[in-house]
Design a protein around this nucleic acid. Structure first.
Length: 114
DNA sequence: TAATTGACCCTTT
DNA sequence: CAAAGGGCCAATT
């Protein structure tokens, strides 16, 4: 397996910046991580994310604001629960536009230390 | 090397 | 808003 891929750690760091109660899309994370056009890689990276990093994978969803898992899957159920615990409400398997993460670019660049 | 596979995205209907 | 089609790109087979 391709562990220790610098792209992966970059993605994890970016996801770690999402504040509780907010969500971002795969494509958005890819862009912010400096990897435009690689939304699919973000999903893969989250799957490989080491548990000790406590990456908030559940705050990442599709660009249409729906969950990326089958509605009846165990993972989707857990994701819904985690989000609701943070105050992110779902209506029709969609989060509200108001809960989308809109990071301050300057602050983000500082945090990620380019 | 070519084909297949995704925790995806965008545009058009 | 939902569904369909085409695109994308790294990892696997």
């Amino acid at each position: 397996m391709t562990a220790a891929n610098p792209h992966y750690t970059r993605i994890w760091e970016t996801v770690l910046q999402i504040p509780a109660g907010k969500v971002a899309s795969y494509g958005q994370i890819a862009d912010l991580a400096g990897l435009p056009g690689r939304a699919r890689l973000v999903g893969k990276a989250l799957g490989y994310a080491p548990k000790e990093l406590a990456v908030p994978w559940y705050r990442v969803l599709r660009s249409d604001r729906s969950l990326a898992f089958p509605a009846d899957s165990e993972t989707a159920l857990r994701q819904r629960e985690l989000l609701q615990d943070e105050g992110v409400l779902l209506t029709n398997n969609r989060v509200r536009k108001a809960d989308l993460w809109q990071p301050d670019l300057m602050e983000l660049l500082f945090q990620l230390k380019y």
